[in-house]
Write a protein that binds this DNA or RNA. Structure first.
Length: 294
DNA sequence: GTCCAGGAGCCAT
DNA sequence: ATGGCTCATGGA
């Protein structure tokens, strides 16, 4: 190895997070975030404009990122390694369906993502499969994201594009990223966010319902996508996104035998799953997706 | 070909 | 309030 590449390789910094029960694969592949690529047992992605490689260990996660780093708080927060999963599970109601879902995805966690990336990604999510959302997000990043530092010899990586950058895109440029009818939604919302109305940095200090109604003023953001952002970016753990999978699961296992409107499903969810309902939702979602039904 | 995907917005009841 | 229709795109 020559001196140059050696110097660059040493720019990778490493750390470990001690964690009780952390299912990295289930967490990073459960449809919360769309930028992680599996490489063997490891995962590579970009968090907060930094390239990251993660791999699971025994009661720990190994992490790599590029120097210089003042600290690892940004990654610990994203991964929510300080969250006590036992406390979360203890808050769940005793019901057999949820219990099985928890067993099927031991160690699944909720991430705490950057608000704009989460919002923009879920605007793209409507009537798309997760693999296709990943493709759209990947195209946006490659074309409009700022390049980030990567290890020597590593393929180029890009940050998630800022709202300001996407606000300058034409609808045609966004459609060229395969966004389809979501292109005008993303463009219009990017312009709102770039203009500072609403200010995503202050939403977290509002009450859940208040923050939700602000998000729902954005083009392309209805109840479901608002709840995804509230849960995955702001940590409102009562938020309970109901997509087609979750709706199917709730009707089948909790409200069977008759035709049930979405409003009734919401009333059931609010009373049944408790203060960490959103966490329960993620277990149910993962369980439904990883299972074959007759 | 047909069906469906981590929906939203619009319009007619 | 509630129920249908349309909006692109790609994979099974």
């Amino acid at each position: 190895m020559n001196g140059l590449s050696s110097a660059l390789v040493t720019n990778v910094e490493r750390t470990e997070f001690r964690v009780r029960s952390y299912n990295l694969a289930a967490t990073l592949e459960s449809g919360q975030a769309f930028r992680w690529r599996a490489l063997g047992g490891a995962y590579e992605g970009v968090v907060g404009g930094r390239w990251v490689r993660l791999s699971p260990g025994v009661d720990k996660l190994h992490a790599e990122a590029m120097a210089p780093l003042a600290d690892w708080d940004w990654l610990a927060g994203y991964l929510q390694v300080g969250e006590c999963l036992e406390t979360v599970l203890a808050s769940f109601p005793r019901d057999a369906v949820l219990a099985e879902a928890v067993l099927r995805a031991r160690g699944l966690r909720l991430l705490r993502q950057e608000a704009w990336e989460c919002l923009a990604s879920f605007i793209l999510s409507s009537t798309k499969r997760i693999v296709q959302i990943r493709q759209m997000v990947g195209l946006l990043c490659a074309r409009y994201g700022a390049p980030v530092a990567v290890p020597c010899g590593h393929a180029a990586e890009f940050a998630f594009p800022t709202a300001e950058r996407l606000a300058r895109c034409s609808e045609a440029e966004l459609r060229a990223c395969r966004l389809g009818f979501r292109a005008p939604y993303l463009r219009a919302t990017a312009r709102r966010i770039a203009g500072g109305d609403p200010d995503l940095a202050t939403l977290g200090s509002l009450e859940l319902e208040q923050a939700r109604s602000v998000l729902m003023t954005l083009p392309g953001v209805g109840r479901k996508i608002a709840d995804c952002v509230l849960l995955f970016a702001y940590g409102f753990q009562r938020a309970f996104p109901i997509d087609v999978w979750i709706g199917k699961a709730l009707r089948r296992f909790y409200l069977p035998g008759r035709r049930v409107a979405l409003a009734e499903i919401r009333r059931f969810v609010d009373t049944h799953f408790g203060p960490r309902a959103g966490y329960a939702q993620q277990y149910l979602f993962h369980s439904m997706r990883s299972r074959v039904f007759p």
